[in-house]
């Protein structure tokens, strides 16, 4: 039965993929090869859609793939089963955390984990900066013309705003979206004659 197979396959992904949403991708590519659920090409399209809709990419692709395979119920099966292993682990880990709350080992582990986590977040910002603002991937292809001046300007303005006002993340996302539209206003003008 297709639903059981879907559940089993997606639970397997949930159990074996660690880290960001992209960690699920190798499994999905493998899946498209062994089953006739969706083609490689369809998978790339799903990935594109999933990365621009809200939510973690891995989860979105699972929803999408489930939908492609077996409709609404399929997407429900895929989403729920990809999260099932994590849910079980969360319950176990949370119980352990409660039990060892005041142990010196846990305190010391957290003392070391926090800076590492902060560093990884900083590294994400660093990487995103080079990907979407400076457009610079290695030393050999560094050109000043590759720098997206508009993005740099927007980044600067948003940074100034962040220093001045109380920050609700929503404000920055909304400002970014509006700026994206306004700064590329020529696209809107050009769409009509070219269509």
């Amino acid at each position: 039965m297709i639903f059981l197979l879907l559940c089993f396959e997606f639970a397997k992904i949930g159990l074996f993929s660690f880290g960001g949403g992209y960690a699920t991708l190798p499994f999905l590519y493998h899946m498209s090869e062994i089953y006739n659920w969706f083609s490689l090409n369809e998978l790339s399209q799903m990935l594109a859609i999933s990365s621009i809709t809200p939510g973690p990419v891995g989860l979105n692709v699972a929803t999408f793939a489930g939908f492609k395979t077996a409709g609404f119920l399929g997407s429900l099966c895929a989403t729920m089963s990809i999260m099932l292993p994590s849910f079980i682990f969360v319950v176990i880990i949370s119980k352990m955390l409660k039990k060892f709350k005041d142990s010196p080992i846990l305190t010391s582990v957290m003392y070391a984990l926090r800076p590492a986590t902060a560093a990884m977040l900083a590294a994400v910002a660093f990487r995103l900066f080079f990907e979407s603002v400076v457009k610079f991937h290695s030393l050999s292809d560094f050109y000043f013309k590759n720098i997206d001046i508009k993005a740099l300007l927007l980044l600067f303005v948003l940074f100034i705003i962040s220093l001045k006002i109380k920050k609700d993340p929503l404000i920055f996302l909304a400002l970014g979206a509006i700026a994206g539209l306004l700064l590329h206003f020529n696209h809107i003008l050009f769409i009509i004659p070219h269509a």
């Binding site: 977040l121 900083a122 979407s132 948003l158 996302l173 970014g176 700026a179 994206g180 590329h184 696209h187």
Partner: peptide, 27 residues
């Protein structure tokens, strides 16, 4: 339709920059 939408790309261009700020604030 969505994949071809330039407008969608423009919006996400701006959102991507905003996300950098969000992460810097978090750090």
């Amino acid at each position: 339709i969505l994949l071809q939408s330039i407008i969608m790309n423009d919006i996400f261009w701006g959102v991507n920059v905003a996300i950098i700020i969000l992460i810097i604030l978090t750090v």
